[in-house]
Amino acid sequence: MSTLFQSFNLSDWVLDLWILATASLVAAACALVGVFLILRRQALMGDAISHSVLLGIVLAYLISGTNALWVMLLGAVIIGLVTAWLSETLHKVSRLQSDASIGIVFTLFFSIGVILVSLYTGQIDLDQECVLYGEIAFVPFDTVIWGDMETGTDLGPRAFWLILIVFAVVLISLLVGFERLKTVTFHPSLAVSLGINITFWHYFLMTLVSMTTVASFDAVGAILVVALLIIPAATAYLLARSLKTMLWLAVAYSQMAVWLGYAIAFWLNSAIAAAIAVSAGLLMGLTLVLIQLSKQYHKRTHAHPLRQIKD
């Protein structure tokens, strides 16, 4: 690896910095969106969209012939919305359970994506492995150049800019739509009676999920996105008592997972993205253990007769 790095005339710490910056933005954006998936009980929809996005990227590339950022984003958002819509429609029209219709749609989309990737390997800048792991270690080498290819200024990694844009979009949407999203999430029937368009917010959220997923795709691959979407948010759900705290906690957990994961990957010489996802899980495990222990402790120390009745 080190000879490869040297040939690019970049010092190691600059590379590490780009990788870490990208990873922490990916994790933060996923955590924010994931909070709503957990609260709205749509964890499986997150799973489904993160798989389908592969097809969106491949199709967008095959149709347009470029891998410009906005084309990828557009492709992913469209296919994400199609996944959400198709699962919903299949559920309604065919009277299948909703998780079954989700499962049928996303496995099909993902399969077509993988088949296309295998068909056009060599022509597409994707292969089966990268679909799964992402290649966050190579993120710094695919850079955006402002101006002429030869003389222009190197603005830094493409994946970084993509996730930065998406992170900004997610953040602004949450700030602007916070109250609405809160109402739609916790009191859907109240939201309806207030005249809030629930369907719009549902698909809005699905759009955010798709955008986050595609922006994370380069870095962490299709399936590990699920871990970053769900696990930090679920951990925060265990502790938080308000939506705001949950959002902050989820981001905090996601950042811890990035640092811990980076260390583990360095130590084991393994894939960084997978290690980050694993650390998110480990942190959740740790939190669960602490919660269980404190429950036990409270039971023992507060074994007051009245309290026992209340429990």
Binding site: D47, V226, A274, V278, M284
Partner: peptide, 14 residues
Amino acid sequence: LAITLSFFFALGLM
């Protein structure tokens, strides 16, 4: 379901 799926898979990939 999603937690188990993604955590185990990530562990496997790692």
